[in-house]
Amino acid sequence: MKTDLPDVLVLGDSHSIALADGCRALGMRVESLYLSGNLWHAGRVALHAQHGFWVQGMPAAQKQILALRERLGGRSLLSRDVPVLASFGFHLGRVVPLFSLHGHMAEPKDFEANSNALYASQSLVDGYVTAFRGQHLRVARRMGRLAPTTFVLPPHYSTWGNLRHFALRIAARLQAQGLRVYDPALAFDPSGAPLEQKWLTSAGNHGNAEYGQAVVGHMLDKGLINRRP
């Protein structure tokens, strides 16, 4: 059976929606699987030998995965001939607020600017990342062996230093595992400033369709993803 393979499979949490929209807006053939960040955070999304990914105890998500497999010509979601844009493993909204509960700051300038803050050393932050994202990093490493994968950092929407710090630390850990990681923030503002409101959804913590299109455009320009000939 001949299958028209997509240019890219977008896989991840709610941040992947804007990426998939961006791909479509730029005329790319896209398949996607969006799963709630909560499921990823809780470690309920696991690698699966046959399907690529599987979600235990979630029939609706399982149905989605099986349907996607079907559209991929029976392939696993993770195969060498379907590039993946991944936006999981971060889920910062589930980690950073708790880390910050007692006033810990990971960024030196934030600690120095707030006389009530506590400082968390680099190795402590790494230990925290390992505790809460170690499983995701392991999944990402194995995933990277199965499919050409590019991890995309979540949108940099806040001035909250810990949020950006954790995103970059997780990204560094992914890179240290040999995975390709793309940080869209630098294309929007090389100085590292947060995104302007026009790129965000009304809730203010997700990129909108225009943001997704801009990100995908940057990635196409850099050759990080391609349209099939």
């Binding site: 969006y34 799963l35 709630s36 909204g93 708790l98 509960l101 007692h102 997700h206």
Partner: peptide, 28 residues
């Protein structure tokens, strides 16, 4: 209870994420 406050905020953010995903799920 600061932790309870943070939990509430995180739950509210989760809800936004869930709704975004569910909205798209319904389109399929």
């Amino acid at each position: 209870d600061a932790e309870a406050d943070v939990e509430r905020d995180m739950a509210a953010e989760d809800l936004i994420c869930e709704e975004m995903v569910l909205e798209r799920f319904n389109e399929n």
